[in-house]
């Protein structure tokens, strides 16, 4: 078949249509590919680029050109949502991504979220939307992926995380009420990005792992609310990637119930075996980020070759990559897949 544009290739993969080869992407957010070397080369850097649409657009385009990942992935952090809902953010440094400095609430029962509309108008979410718009205007053939922090992790960035996890057990009613409102907010934020031109929404929810929550709570909280957000995004006819951190073993039976157009998994997950067990899944992953940071280009290329030959649909890093990963390793990764 004739060669497809990166956007056609990725969208065809979600739709299970024929493709010329596998796409290689890095969706942004938790999986941010704006490494220090790209900042050095482009002159656009963290932390300024987290809050300035012009800088963010230029850095996102530089990532696309320099790394070989076949998408635009923004934002570069996981703090936009919780900040819009009231938590304080420490924007970090050139090499260190932003993090939550102070959670807004002490307990789930105390959370009174601000009105979604005003939270979206007066926060960094509009900077992200402006960036999505500018990037999709400049690169019409490249899929623009808007990355969301999932409902459990966002709620866990609004309430002190220790207390949040305890409340899932001790105060399930308040936890459900909070996460439900967070899910509503995330859907509206996704719409803001979609209206600006996002082709795909990716949800990463690192607090919602089987290893942290166990199978029962993973089903009651993670699957339930991630699916609610995904359903909302699907109403806008936009595909959804869901990344689940950590080992999937404790929650494998729930993975097939995620309303995801692609499921992305961590390095320890055998995606070929997962695909064999659930052939209807579109799988995404999972090159070791440890290898990307500490390996050699030759070793990275060899590992990429194995992923390419296996039955994995979309090739991507396994998890969040370090900003100090060498560009040569990332290029070796994407070159191997694109060859």
């Amino acid at each position: 078949m004739s060669s497809l544009s990166p956007k056609e290739r990725l969208l065809n993969t979600f739709a299970r249509k024929a493709v010329d080869r596998k796409p290689v992407i890095c969706p942004g957010g938790m999986m941010n590919a704006a490494i220090v070397e790209v900042m050095d080369n482009s002159g656009k850097a963290f932390p300024e680029a987290h809050s300035d649409a012009g800088l963010m657009t230029e850095l996102a385009l530089a990532v696309n050109i320099q790394t070989g990942f076949e998408n635009i992935g923004i934002p570069f952090c996981m703090t936009v949502e919780a900040e819009a809902l009231g938590s304080a953010v420490d924007f970090g440094t050139r090499a260190c991504e932003p993090k939550i400095a102070v959670e807004r609430y002490a307990a789930a029962a105390e959370a009174v979220l601000p009105d979604t509309k005003s939270a979206l108008e007066s926060s960094r979410s509009s900077v992200i939307a402006t960036t999505v718009e500018a990037a999709s205007r400049q690169l019409t053939d490249v899929p623009v992926i808007g990355s969301l922090t999932g409902p459990i992790s966002t709620a866990g960035s609004l309430v002190d995380p220790m207390r949040f996890l305890k409340d899932l057990r001790k105060d399930a009613a308040a936890s459900h009420a909070l996460i439900d409102k967070v899910a509503d907010f995330l859907i509206e934020y996704a719409y803001q990005l979609i209206e600006a031109g996002a082709d795909v929404i990716s949800i990463a929810d690192p607090t919602a792992t089987g290893e942290i929550l166990g199978p029962k709570m993973f089903e009651d909280f993670a699957v339930r609310y991630i699916n609610r957000v995904a359903d909302g995004i699907h109403r806008a006819n936009i595909p959804v990637i869901v990344h689940i951190c950590g080992d999937l073993k404790p929650v494998k039976s729930h993975i097939a119930h995620l309303h995801a157009d692609a499921v992305s998994a961590d390095a320890m997950v055998d995606l070929v075996a997962l695909k064999a067990e659930f052939p209807e899944l579109v799988t995404m992953g999972n090159l070791s980020t440890y290898l990307l940071e500490f390996g050699t280009p030759e070793k990275v290329a060899a590992a990429a070759e194995i992923l390419k030959r296996g039955s994995i649909d979309i090739i991507a890093p396994a998890c969040g990559l370090s900003t100090s990963s060498p560009l040569a390793n990332i290029k070796a990764f994407t070159d191997a897949i694109r060859a």
Binding site: E211, G214, M217
Partner: peptide, 14 residues
């Protein structure tokens, strides 16, 4: 043995 997970351990500790 994966009968308890992190929320359970934290509440046990309380």
């Amino acid at each position: 043995s994966e009968e308890y997970f992190i929320p359970e351990l934290l509440v046990c500790s309380d």
